[in-house]
């Protein structure tokens, strides 16, 4: 089984880049099961459809402004773009739209979303807030655990 862990966000915008920081942490934190690919999706949109559809399952890591406690995170299984929590994605073709592309192309996405709550996005800052810096290893550890648990499951 091929699994893609995809971190999304803009590292120039402080906490908004948390998804990218998480996958970088995950990559640098010891071995991962076979078949796992980790990708810094950064600010890419349509170009991510290829790597996403090449995987059997996609684990997305993204920031959300859902009004919750900054640094907390949820594990969600969105089916359609409308299942997404509120993020900042309003770009012409955003990540959410890529999920719809699956259906249009006659496929069903197998996507798990780690949505990390952020409070506000600064103008331009490479530094994340303390709450989000502290969240990075926690989210990374949760994903690592899920990846190894999946690897231990018998192949279906």
């Amino acid at each position: 089984m091929k699994i893609l862990v995809l971190g999304i966000g803009n590292i120039l915008l402080g906490d908004e880049g948390v998804g990218v920081h998480v996958v970088r942490h995950l990559e640098g934190g010891g071995p991962l099961p076979q078949g796992v690919e980790v990708l810094d999706g950064g600010t890419g949109a349509m170009v991510l459809l290829g790597p996403m559809q090449a995987a059997d399952r996609v684990i997305l890591v993204d920031a959300t402004m859902d009004g919750g406690t900054p640094g907390s995170f949820q594990r969600l299984v969105p089916r359609y773009s409308s299942d997404y929590p509120p993020t900042l994605t309003a770009h012409d073709i955003g990540l959410k739209d890529l999920l719809d592309c699956y259906y249009l192309m006659g496929e069903e996405p197998d996507v798990v979303l780690y949505a990390v709550t952020v409070a506000e996005i600064p103008d331009l800052d490479l530094e994340m807030s303390d709450a989000l810096k502290e969240a990075v290893p926690r989210v990374s550890a949760a994903i690592r655990e899920e990846l190894w648990a999946m690897a231990a499951e018998p192949m279906v």
Partner: peptide, 9 residues
């Protein structure tokens, strides 16, 4: 797609 009500894109 249209009938699913999930027009999305």
């Amino acid at each position: 797609h249209v009938e699913s009500g999930q027009l999305g894109i």
